[in-house]
Design a protein around this nucleic acid. Structure first.
Lengths: 238, 238
DNA sequence: CGTCTGGTTGATCTAGATCAACAGGAGTGG
DNA sequence: CCACTCCTGTTGATCTAGATCAACCAGACG
């Protein structure tokens, strides 16, 4: 999908309304347009590395980017996923500290980049952009707090089901018979890394869940066969 | 300590410089003074409950407050600790959503309260308060992201050592012989809840760590006997 | 075709949970 | 002052979810 997108002007960006840059004037957009660069990325490419100094923020027009943290022993975890309309790297832009995790392209993506120096000027001229960042930060935090709570309390199965449901909320749809379906945007290994587990364990949990009739897996396509049971198990709170 | 503090005016608040309210003018402080209320709390008291609507923000002048999340099965986790100078409850103030976790007093605390309606007015009049909240949110997020990464990757021992070191950074001191010491501000059960574990396991990990000569425990007083080994094990990254 | 990457399955091992008993204070009340 | 209870923490015995190691399989792709 990313590669077929012809226009990459902010003014016509299909996902701009979801970004921090929504609601800016024509002139302001033009200003951003002038300082931004943009290009297409392949899966596996890296926008910035853990420990790098911040050089600006990246706005994902289309695709999927994960922030990956690697510890001293080389174990890695996927801390966050960012999809179309999301700006990443704003955290270390604001703190002036090095990136705490790297940003890695997970599916083919088209990403715009705004250099720090330019962004600083924009922020001074447009205080409401700062407010957008605050809203964004709060949303991210909510997100990550849920993940923390679940990772502290839940078992593998529960955490896995939660991830599936999050994907369903974002990308889910219904087939002709009105049955709910999700296409998983990432491979199992990466799902494992989102919940602190290993691919083998994911496999086992999947076959268990299929046996219980909650989900039906066809490669990356997941049929949700017992929504109620899943929602009950995942819990509605937080 | 909390109970001996005589003055509870913002203007003379000993921890104001650490709060979002630092750098306000005399007049602005006076405005806050007029709308705030404040009182002393005993451990176990609750500032707000998970699921409650937001009614304002709480600024901790002295003491320790934990945000506790309880899931459907009744398992609880301590997601965050907030000490003197920290304002809590700002998240759901900004989102207008119910509190995602409850705020529970962990040590005797003196806490000020600013009602939402009043705070909204303050925010409009003083945009820089919003900016403080952004800074605060970013810091909180950094914090919670580290916890998430560790909870996804680390073993119990590593996570435990990490919380000890965090406490040391906040409250640690040196005795007459220049040996580093921390007083743990919370009981073991609560430490367990911070890292998704159980008190028994904490006990075992403690005796193991003592055996290895890294730390020496005397009730809540912890002597750090091998700082280098601990720092190495905890890792410096992120 | 081989080779690679992603995924599954089986056998085994282990960190940490669970269950249960007990120990040391700190209050409280006689 | 002792007896009692409550609360926090420790220790021991056992159990289990999930990690680890290893083999294998199916597509994709040059």
């Amino acid at each position: 999908m990313a590669e077929m997108n012809a226009s990459h002007k902010c003014a016509t960006c299909p996902t701009r309304h979801k970004t921090e840059w929504s609601g800016l004037s024509e002139a302001e957009l033009a200003a951003i347009e002038k300082v931004k660069s943009a290009r297409y990325y392949e899966p596996g490419e890296v926008l910035f590395h853990q420990g790098d100094a911040n050089d600006g923020v990246y706005c994902i027009q289309d695709g999927l980017v994960g922030s990956r943290y690697v510890d001293a022993e080389g174990n890695s975890a996927l801390l966050q996923l960012a999809n179309a309309g999301t700006t990443i790297g704003y955290r270390s832009f604001l703190t002036k500290l090095p990136h705490g995790s790297s940003a890695e392209i997970l599916s083919p993506s088209f990403v715009c980049f705004i250099r720090s120096s330019a962004l600083s000027k924009l922020l001074i001229a447009n205080p409401q952009i700062g407010e957008r960042f605050l809203q964004h930060a709060i949303k991210d935090m909510e997100d990550i707090e849920i993940r923390l709570a679940r990772s502290l309390l839940g078992n593998l199965r529960n955490k896995f089901l939660h991830v599936i449901m999050v994907f369903y909320q974002q990308n889910g749809y219904r087939d002709k018979n009105n049955n709910p379906i999700v296409e998983l945007p990432i491979k199992r290994t990466d799902i494992a890394e989102m919940i602190g587990s290993k691919p083998e364990s994911i496999s086992r949990v999947i076959s268990d869940i299929e046996k219980k009739g909650l989900l039906k897996f066809d490669h990356r396509r997941v049929h949700i066969t017992n929504m109620d049971a899943i929602l009950y198990e995942v819990g509605i709170t937080l």
